[in-house]
Simulated scan of single mutants.
Amino acid sequence: MTNAFHVGQLVRVTRPSSGYADRRIYCILCMVAEERGIPLYRIKNTVGAERLVSAEEIEPAALTALP
């Protein structure tokens, strides 16, 4: 399993399932088992909202980003 991201990395959602851009900063908590060959990541924002996303749905946050 090749990891595009690592635990603790700050990311932004680029293709949200709800249809609009979610520009909040999220932190990758862990990598979840692959589903149909696609690795899934559990991410969490500062409010405490967690979600599962694939690598295609997220991008690294800027180096100056704060959680």
Rank of each mutant, 00 (worst) to 15 (best):
H6C: 08
S17M: 10
L66M: 07
E50I: 07
G48C: 08
T14P: 03
S17I: 10
P16T: 11
L10V: 15
L29Y: 02
N45A: 08
I38V: 14
R23W: 02
Q9G: 04
R15L: 08
P39L: 10
E34A: 14
R51D: 01
A33H: 12
I38D: 03
A4E: 12
M1S: 14
R42S: 06
L10P: 04
R24S: 09
G19W: 08
T2M: 08
A49D: 12
P39C: 12
L10R: 14
G19A: 08
E57Q: 15
M1P: 01
T14E: 05
L52S: 14
E50M: 14
P60H: 06
E57K: 10
E34W: 11
L40K: 05
V32F: 00
Y26K: 13
Y41M: 06
I28H: 01
C30R: 15
A65M: 03
V32K: 10
R15I: 07
S54A: 11
R15M: 04
A65D: 03
Y20F: 08
L52Y: 09
N45K: 13
H6Q: 11
G19P: 03
I28G: 02
L40V: 04
P16R: 10
R12F: 00
R23K: 12
R15E: 09
A65H: 01
V7K: 15
I38G: 03
F5D: 03
E35A: 13
M31W: 05
T14L: 06
P67Q: 11
S54H: 00
P60D: 10
E57D: 14
G37C: 08
M1I: 13
R51S: 07
A61H: 03
R15N: 11
V47T: 11
N45G: 04
E50N: 02
C30D: 08
R15W: 01
A49T: 12
N45M: 08
G8S: 13
V53N: 01
I38F: 00
K44H: 01
R23C: 05
D22A: 04
Q9R: 15
S54M: 02
A49C: 09
F5N: 11
G48Y: 03
M1F: 06
V53E: 05
C27Q: 13
K44N: 02
Y41E: 01
A62T: 08
A49Q: 14
P60A: 15
A62H: 10
F5R: 09
G19H: 15
I38A: 09
G48N: 11
I28K: 05
L10I: 14
Y41C: 04
E59R: 10
E34P: 07
L40M: 14
V11D: 00
I28C: 02
S54Y: 00
V7C: 06
Y20V: 05
I25P: 01
R12A: 04
E34C: 14
R15A: 05
Y20N: 00
K44I: 09
A49P: 01
R51C: 07
P67L: 15
G19Q: 10
N45D: 14
L66R: 07
T46L: 12
E59P: 00
Y26C: 03
V13I: 15
L63C: 06
P39G: 05
A21W: 04
Q9K: 15
A4F: 06
A21L: 12
S17Q: 11
Q9M: 12
S18I: 06
C30V: 09
A61Q: 00
C27R: 15
P16H: 09
P67R: 10
